Simulated scan of single mutants.
Amino acid sequence: MIPSFKAHPWHGISAGENAPEVVNVFVEIVPTDTIKYEVDKETGYLKVDRPQKFSNIIPALYGFIPRTYCEEEVKNLAVATGAADVTEGDHDPLDICVLSSHNITSGNILMEAIPIGGFQMIDKGEADDKIIAVLVEDQVYGHIRDISELPKAEINRLLHYFLSYKNLPTEPAKVKIDLVYGADHAKKVILASQKDYTDNYAK
């Protein structure tokens, strides 16, 4: 029987049969977007979060891994790696950036990606990790298996975006990134976020 409803992109789709080696990604934003979109947690529809106020445009495909959540396990992992000022997870699905050489023009799509590393971002005391991944079978990025294989300029471009996208010229910086980690730790973060999801939503 063909289902007569659309699966919720956060709760109704798995993280992937081979997660954390290969994960499903729900893409919310693409590099050409001047509006920040995000999934409405209640309905599952993509909604306008806010217009981008300045020239900081996301340099990669951006979304989340389904059936993940950032709370105690993700926070504890951040503390274990030296984050002294983190008090909780950010209570959202785990964010992920996917590098691809293809010109994907709109979000609201699913894709498979290979995690290669990530950024341990702390946003006002909240653990808000950003996983970095590559599109499966991408002609330019698809062979990469660890963030150390990326050009330094590519990493710096991603770092600059996340360190500046919430900032206003008249306010102090709201976020910091103390750790850039590789594929092994990225997989630990994904597993921690899956446990946080199970603990909060699969009871």
Rank of each mutant, 00 (worst) to 15 (best):
L61N: 01
D178Y: 06
L94T: 00
G142I: 09
N103F: 14
V79H: 01
F26Y: 15
N156A: 12
C70R: 04
W10I: 05
H185P: 00
D138W: 11
K6T: 14
Y37P: 01
D146Q: 07
D33S: 11
H91N: 14
E154F: 07
K188W: 01
E21H: 13
L150C: 09
V74S: 01
V134R: 07
F64W: 03
Y181P: 03
Y197D: 00
D199N: 14
D49E: 12
L179K: 14
K152Y: 12
V180D: 01
N76A: 04
E154L: 13
P20E: 01
K203E: 12
K53V: 14
G63D: 02
A173F: 12
R145S: 13
Y165I: 07
Q194W: 01
P66I: 00
D199W: 01
D129T: 14
D184E: 14
G107V: 03
P59F: 11
F54S: 08
D95Y: 05
I2Y: 09
K174S: 12
Y62F: 14
P115A: 08
N56D: 14
L158H: 10
H143I: 06
I58P: 01
S101K: 14
D49C: 05
L135H: 09
E137G: 09
G16F: 02
L61C: 00
T81C: 06
L99R: 11
